[in-house]
Design a protein around this nucleic acid. Sequence first.
DNA 1: AAGTCGGGGAA
DNA 2: TTCCCAGACTT
Length: 253
Amino acid sequence: MSQAVSRYNKSMDQQHFFQRGLIAWYQPENRPLPWKGINNPYHIWLSEIILQQTRVEQGMSYYLRFVEAYPSIRDLAAAPDDEVMKLWEGLGYYSRARNLLAAARYVTTELGGVFPHTYTGILALKGVGAYTAAAIASFAFNLPHAVVDGNVFRVLARFFGISTPQDSTAGKKEFTQLAESLLQRDQPALYNQAIMDFGATVCLPRNPKCGQCPLHTECVALRDKRIAELPVKSKKADQDRAFFSLFDLQLRR
DNA sequence: AAGTCGGGGAA
DNA sequence: TTCCCAGACTT
């Protein structure tokens, strides 16, 4: 019992260190972005759809062009399909554009142009999954939902030394629960921005800046020299290629 | 649980 | 080349 309590307390200390360190580190002006510091749900939503599996630098100009072309969600809803697809050209994952338009029309016609303001309402929109719903809910409405994207998986896996594959069912559950427990519920938007900015600028996928990391003294992966191994993914394109090239080699003999 | 959808930058 | 990017959806 006392051991369990002790371990529990240590974990809580670790979590508090993480939260405080992250917030202390975060300076919004370090990474100014057009969709940062605003609370227009339409603009937030648009930016999040564009940024799905897309680098900020690549999505930036598209976001600006969409906002320019369609100042309101009604404008987007009224746009012809081919015009929107043309504007999306070059971004990839074109189903995002189709879902974007479908959702815009749904909000405009079915919801009277009022963007849904609850997590479940937002999640119901086409093209909006758990991550995007949490992002919109927190950034636009300051609702307490923790974002869990590639940055968050990486930061949490390393700092807490979690080796559960992030793309497994168990992993998604574990990381999501941890993220929710870490979320500073009195300032969800700020906290979510902070952890993603941290992952994008300090706790990088390769060659993370551990030397100048404000959390390095308590980072489990750094302590155990497992930075390069974390986070773990079970889907390994790598493994498949290795297998098939080996198979190929057998056939050639 | 595994597969699919993409262009692009960095190592 | 490989990995990964503010993932979601279908099978």
